[in-house]
Design a protein around this nucleic acid. Sequence first.
DNA 1: CAAAAAAGTTAGGCTGTACTAATTTGGCTC
DNA 2: GAGCCAAATTAGTACAGCCTAACTTTTTTG
Lengths: 218, 218
Amino acid sequence: MTPALLAEPLTRSVEDYLKAIYRLSSGGQPASTSDIAELLSLSAPSVSGMIRRLSEQGLLEHVPYRGVLLTVAGRRGALRMIRRHRLIEAYLVGFLGYSWDTVHDEAERLEHAVSEALIERMALALGNPRFDPHGDPIPSSDGSMAEPVYTPLAEVRVGETVEIRRVDTSQPERLRYLEHSGLKPGIQVTLLERQPFRGPLKLRIGAEEQVIGHELAQ
Amino acid sequence: MTPALLAEPLTRSVEDYLKAIYRLSSGGQPASTSDIAELLSLSAPSVSGMIRRLSEQGLLEHVPYRGVLLTVAGRRGALRMIRRHRLIEAYLVGFLGYSWDTVHDEAERLEHAVSEALIERMALALGNPRFDPHGDPIPSSDGSMAEPVYTPLAEVRVGETVEIRRVDTSQPERLRYLEHSGLKPGIQVTLLERQPFRGPLKLRIGAEEQVIGHELAQ
DNA sequence: CAAAAAAGTTAGGCTGTACTAATTTGGCTC
DNA sequence: GAGCCAAATTAGTACAGCCTAACTTTTTTG
């Protein structure tokens, strides 16, 4: 419950915890110890210990045996890292020829090391983008983030032509597949037909393609 | 005395120690505990402790009370960091508008975080340069480094026109001054006159300038 | 060349972050 | 509602790196 206005710098570990908890609690439910442990590949006791320290620092709210939620300060820290991560990804893809699937790990390490000044220079070089290469929104430096609602491709009507806006980044191999088939944000796609019972969708991207049982969640 | 061919990754601290020891022992003399402590802003006992660990890892040769020298493995680690540092500096100056005096600190942190792949992409974007923006040589990825011998400006004859090749990077404020006065590598300079007894030198850079008592060591 | 000063090392401690093993708590089932 | 399982926490340990205080070795100097 420290004021946290004078914000001492966070360690790398703390930054990773905040990001993880942000992701896990994005739906409003608290993040559980074991989910955090799973996401960060750590043991549950390690997470328990860190949760205690982060609570004492006022970065999160802990209800024992129930889970944690970020405080305002914690959320600020998390969004700062997400901004960094997504800008770094955008920069590496835009200026250094990185591909979708390799850029994540690089950004994961750089996000802890880069200065505020460099982040802003990269943002400037990119034209202060609002979205990263996968279509995920980039928080602004004051910590606000546009979170537009898109229609999952699975729910588009047959015959409709839509623009891909965002792709799920949680699985690298799926990403690689999407990249290979040209399903990138900004691309126009027409839904040709849909098989019932969560069956595959056929769509046209210029040439055409027929894929994805329902891993086209969006 | 481990073989060190399977090279476990070095920690940030270890990387900094290796760089410091490389610098301090570049003349062939061993680096002393207190010089290392001074350079890294650490206490002497901290350095003593780290020296023991690094010796055990086979990264340096320690003669108690006498000093340390890098082993082949240690030198490899040091040159790897110097390559990273100088390429990052060159990249930030060349592509992101950094100035001489601000680029060092940024590189100091990034050099520990960047992947081998990103370093090589930056090198490629720069056209595999052999020298960084200050004129310091960049070690190649196999660990060799050209170390040309240049004539200090203080020893140039009056009337001669020479090209600036390299500037001393050890003092940020001096660097800032040099940058301001246009004394950058690649620039042509004519020595107009020299005052005796380590007095100031007058030189022409297009317009002209008269500076530097003898901090123009090169 | 002996004593003082400087440099280096050892001893002992602290913090951050991780671990395993043991214990506690909460929720589910019969 | 008793018992059990899973999840969470506590207890105790380790290691990297840092520190200060105290001691030893080397160098300098009167």
